[in-house]
């Protein structure tokens, strides 16, 4: 799809470029904030799976920059933002980058060191694996990623803090909900308007972190598995099957974003420019090196090999 065509089709793609966001997902966090006011009083934030960095950008613009520009700000008072990803990303003002694995508890120690021993008020996670197309598989890997994120959360989040994570809504959503409920009394699944209807994506907004009494972060997985395998649901194949029927869990679900605002499923005409030519902007941050970069490089050589092979079989 050409850039201009995508501009027409996807209002948020266009707006993201106009406003200088690295990805359209920035709007999702902004719209969640509109609804939940997640940035209120926040001094320390962790952004998990941050690359390419659009959520870090939001954090920087909403927390760091206003504080920095206010006249009575002091260096020591500025909000701290730590972004964690395996991949490096282009620097963002006020964001400390940590290259690390979010499944690893050692990463948490690094974060806490950056916070000088304090714990975070907010943890956000917009990470997702490349979808395969098998929804159950994608949903599973995504929920594994969130639960891995919980490892960090249990280490770095202060009590009463918030956790926001991307989820894939599917048949096991209620299971994930119950798992998150163990640590957060208030869990809402939110769908910002900038997230397309056709996408199974939504966001878990978890508030008021309060781990179970006597909780030891080492027991996290045991606790989570316990939710996954209750005594009653043994003969059901589907993991969240026991949450149907009498045990049915009703998950608070909320559409957020200004309802009169842009609709991601709607196409909007491009603005009319005076000279009649609309110029499509380049993406703010071009894609980082994809994993298949080497495959592309080697493509030529290997296809050359095939030709030789064909020649061989022809001559024989």
């Amino acid at each position: 799809m050409g850039k201009a065509s995508r501009d027409k089709r996807d209002i948020y793609y266009r707006k993201a470029k106009e406003e200088g966001w690295r990805a359209r997902s920035a709007f999702k966090l902004l719209q969640i904030d509109e609804e939940f006011n997640i940035f209120e009083g926040v001094k320390r934030v962790v952004d998990l799976c941050a690359a390419p960095g659009s959520w870090s950008q939001v954090l920087s613009r909403r927390l760091y920059l206003p504080a920095k520009l206010s006249p009575d700000s002091r260096e020591s008072d500025l909000p701290l933002i730590v972004a964690i990803d395996l991949q490096p990303m282009a620097p963002i003002e006020g964001v400390i980058q940590v290259q690390g694995d979010i499944t690893n508890a050692r990463t948490a120690e690094v974060v806490i060191r950056h916070f000088e021993g304090c714990k975070a008020d907010l943890v956000v996670c917009d990470g997702a694996p490349d979808v395969t197309g098998l929804h159950d598989m994608d949903e599973f890997v995504q929920s594994q990623l969130i639960l891995a994120g919980l490892t960090i959360v249990t280490h770095v989040l202060r009590e009463g803090g918030k956790f926001i994570a991307k989820i894939f809504r599917g048949k096991d959503t209620s299971l994930l909900y119950c798992q998150l409920k163990l640590f957060f009394p208030l869990v809402t699944f939110a769908k910002p308007k900038s997230s397309r209807n056709s996408s199974i994506e939504a966001f878990a907004v978890c508030e008021n972190y309060s781990p179970p009494e006597g909780f030891n972060p080492k027991d996290l997985y045991r606790l989570l598995e316990k939710v996954g395998s209750p005594s009653g649901g043994e003969d059901l194949d589907c993991s969240s099957g026991w949450l149907e029927g009498p045990n049915k869990v009703y998950i608070p679900f909320l559409a957020c974003g200004d309802l009169s605002g842009y609709d991601s499923d709607r196409s909007y005409p491009l603005p009319k420019v005076a000279d009649g030519t609309y110029k499509s902007l380049d993406p703010v941050q071009p894609p980082i090196a994809p994993p298949y970069k080497r495959a592309l490089e080697l493509k030529k050589a290997s296809s050359h090999g095939i030709q030789e092979l064909e020649k061989l079989s022809l001559d024989s």
């Binding site: 694996p129 490349d130 395969t132 994993p291 298949y292 970069k293 080497r294 495959a295």
Partner: peptide
């Protein structure tokens, strides 16, 4: 590999592995 490992297979004698990945290889 430069991407997630989607599948692995063992050779019948267990001495070799083949893996396929997100990196198209």
């Amino acid at each position: 590999h430069e991407g997630s490992i989607f599948r692995i297979t063992w050779s019948s004698d267990g001495s070799n592995l083949v893996s396929v990945s997100d990196d198209r290889s």
